[in-house]
Design a protein around this nucleic acid. Structure first.
Lengths: 206, 206
DNA sequence: ATAAATTAATTAAACGTTTGTTTAATTTCA
DNA sequence: TGAAATTAAACAAACGTTTAATTAATTTAT
């Protein structure tokens, strides 16, 4: 791996763990095993490195649901596939999601804030359309579409905020790593699907 | 208000807005209109001031559900009252919740991390008991209790992460302040109650 | 093909600020 | 008069960034 990539992946890790202000460029240089000046040389500044990190990572985890929305399967199945996709993506990149949500809650760097909002709300229009179609066709109840999306993302997010809090919430011991547990991923998917079936479907037998 | 209290309330505001590392003691002193040295004089250090902030605020927003749990009303009504209480509390102190969740996602100060985990999970045992009672008595379906709690808290939390993101999610303009909107509070309460009735109740007619 | 010239990559050191904290002197108030 | 409160100034350490010098790689010219 070339030094530029090493810096980038080290920065993702450290910004995710310690936050932007909590991570110094010297921390990054040391952990990446490169000279301090290489960061300015390649990225210009700490803030521009941060922007590169967000841009790089967000494009790598991009998922598009446009095709799914157009397909002719029942809307509830579309919702279930979106749940699987979100759970998979967020559990695979917990540190990056820490970074995104922390930056959102700060509002220290307005343009970064807007960029992150865009990343997180990328698929909201599509999902809104799916739920609305379900309502219009009589498949779904007349729920609060926007808050339903908040429930989907918020549930997953809350479990990812902190390893130790997740462990305590689930009454697990220290051997249990929530972020790599395949069982937990499946459990969250199953919970959300069941929740959404009860919440959305008119004739639900569960 | 005496200088000690002024420092404390200013610190809550600034730590909430800019984070711990993002706030300097000079920022706090200047905003509070006191001399820089007063912070060390009253609180010892920046970190001890932070601990005071968390301790002070968390005790002031403490709610105990022990009595509610023991009362003889239907379990679903207990759940609904807890929803109202959580929504009210979190929407009234959005900055403090920013602070708590940001600190949780960082794990920079382990003992602070544990203290915050304790604050956030304070009522989890009680709520777990309520849902479990509902399941045992046949009032509730056999849901995933722990993840149901994650859904409750996570939904509210997701809306509080960022003013601007909440506005975009709800398609509101800049005049709309999510954190002070009475309508949004009621809307979130209503959404969560409806969600929980569908999710929990065996014989739900909605 | 090889030597010279040019560009790119990498380094250690230093820059000026800002950081949290402490000092010692002064003011306030009981 | 004496303890508590408040101040301006200074402290060393850490910060992001820049500099100028050196090494490595690539291009050009012969």
């Amino acid at each position: 791996m070339n030094p530029k990539e090493t810096i980038l992946s080290t920065a993702i890790k450290l910004f995710g763990e310690k936050g932007f202000e909590g991570t110094s460029v010297r921390d990054i240089a040391k952990a990446a095993g490169v000279n301090l000046a290489m960061i300015s040389y390649y990225f210009g500044s700490k803030e521009m490195l941060f922007e590169h990190v967000v841009e790089y990572k967000s494009s790598s985890i991009r998922v598009v649901f446009a095709e799914l929305a157009k397909s002719s399967i029942p809307q509830i199945e579309k919702v279930e596939r979106i749940i699987d996709s979100y759970v998979e993506r967020m559990f695979t990149n917990p540190q990056f999601h820490h970074l995104l949500h922390r930056e959102l809650s700060l509002y220290q760097r307005p343009q970064m804030h807007d960029a992150i909002t865009e990343i997180l709300l990328r698929n909201v229009v599509t999902i809104t359309g799916i739920i609305q179609s379900g309502i219009d066709s009589g498949e779904f109840k007349e729920v609060d579409t926007q808050l339903t999306i908040a429930t989907l993302i918020g549930t997953i997010n809350h479990l990812l905020i902190s390893e130790s809090m997740c462990r305590k919430l689930l009454h697990k011991n220290k051997d249990f790593n929530p972020f790599t547990s395949k069982k937990l991923k499946e459990r969250v998917s199953e919970h959300l699907k069941q929740l959404m079936r009860s919440h959305l479907l008119i004739n639900n037998k569960s």
